[in-house]
Simulated scan of single mutants.
Amino acid sequence: MIRIGIDLGADKIRVVTAEEGVIFDEACAVALDQKGNVLAIGNEAKELQGGVDEAISVIFPLALPKIDFYALHALLEQLIYDFKMFKMFKKTIFLFSYPTALNHKDRDELKDHLLEFGAYRVYFDQEIWVAAIGAQLNLFIPVSSCVLNIGSSNCDIAVFSRGEMTRQSQNKVAGRHIDLLIQKWLRQSFRLQVSDSVVEQIKIQLGQTIVQKNPRSMIVEGLDLKNQQLRSIQIDENMLVPVLMPLCEHWANWIYQFLKGLHRDEQEDILMRGLICCGGTMLLKGLKENLQKLISCPVYVTDDPLNTVAQGLETLLSRMESIS
């Protein structure tokens, strides 16, 4: 039996096995030619975006208002081929961790296609569930646990108790808004347009929500919107604090309202056990401290917030019994 876990996101797709862990962790993107043939997937496809060859289409299947199933199927089929997920005389089971944007009809579409393509079984678990498992929480005890997962395109919070998800809420503002705010700030403050890769570097190196005594700085190069010439500026992390702090406050208010709506016993459990957070956005410097201060509740971040969901998939795959 071959068991494959897939963490499906709008920006990233991760492929996991119980034996090897994460075997693919790249952009959820596929490059197609005019006939619909796959030219590249993942980061290689992403690098082709904005190229001069108009015959190449780079598609992020889940990042569109409506899921591009042709592109998604092509991406998954290429992954199946590249990693030899189908083998003679062996059955292949897929376990998907899916974002809230993937509704029941979408999941059925994806499941039917994979079954037709040769999969033996296809299962789906909501990402927040898998995140809770990856955080190594005991979800079956009669005590409430609260998990927050902020990824690039998803933002979910849920309460678990006695093996059930008793409360859940979603927020449309997710991690990608950090990039949007940085781009907007550079345009408005410096009349500078920068690439997505530069924004990513700024976010990783200077993304900050607490003023620092000795702020780090970096040189940023972009297109001057006035004269359309390349121009460089120097920025530091303290300059980003007022840009990103409103995002912290937005999330904190949403979390506070969610916790406020819980039963008293649930609130007491969470105040005692804390809010367990994961997702790559939790790597934003100062976010944990600001959330804890603003919601007046202990906040804990998993050891590897970026890969907590993938770790949850590994755990589930290792627990799955053989299906004959």
Rank of each mutant, 00 (worst) to 15 (best):
V301D: 06
T315Q: 11
S152E: 12
D236N: 15
M165N: 10
Q193M: 13
T100L: 08
N290K: 15
R319P: 01
A18N: 10
M245W: 10
W251Y: 11
K87I: 06
L180R: 12
K226G: 02
Q257S: 12
G134P: 07
D269S: 11
K105N: 11
C297W: 03
L192W: 05
I13W: 00
A74D: 00
Q136F: 00
L8R: 02
R14A: 14
F140K: 12
I133K: 13
E268W: 11
Q78K: 14
M245R: 15
I6C: 04
M239I: 01
E221S: 15
I323F: 06
A55E: 09
A119M: 08
H104W: 00
S324C: 01
G312A: 07
A132L: 02
G163M: 06
M1G: 04
G118A: 02
G286W: 14
I13K: 00
N307S: 05
D179S: 15
L223G: 06
V130T: 12
K293I: 09
Q49M: 13
E127V: 04
E54G: 01
L32Q: 05
L102R: 09
L225A: 02
A55N: 12
R187G: 13
L48F: 02
D7R: 03
F140T: 13
A252T: 13
P246H: 15
D33M: 01
W129C: 07
I276S: 03
A40Y: 03
C277F: 12
G9F: 06
A101E: 11
M88D: 04
L139Y: 08
N37H: 11
F89A: 08
Y120Q: 07
N171W: 12
L137V: 08
I204G: 08
V15F: 02
L317C: 03
K66I: 09
K293E: 15
F24V: 03
T209L: 12
G36Q: 09
L8T: 03
E20V: 00
R191M: 07
G286R: 14
A158H: 04
V241N: 11
I2T: 07
L110D: 04
A40P: 01
R191T: 09
G222H: 07
E47W: 03
I41T: 14
M1L: 05
C277L: 09
A55Q: 06
L287W: 10
K293V: 08
C28F: 07
V58T: 06
H263S: 14
F96Y: 10
L48G: 01
D68V: 05
D106F: 01
A158S: 13
P99T: 10
R121W: 00
H263P: 12
V194P: 08
I80F: 05
D269I: 05
V194R: 11
N171C: 14
L62P: 02
E127H: 05
Q34T: 10
I80Q: 06
A74Q: 13
S145R: 11
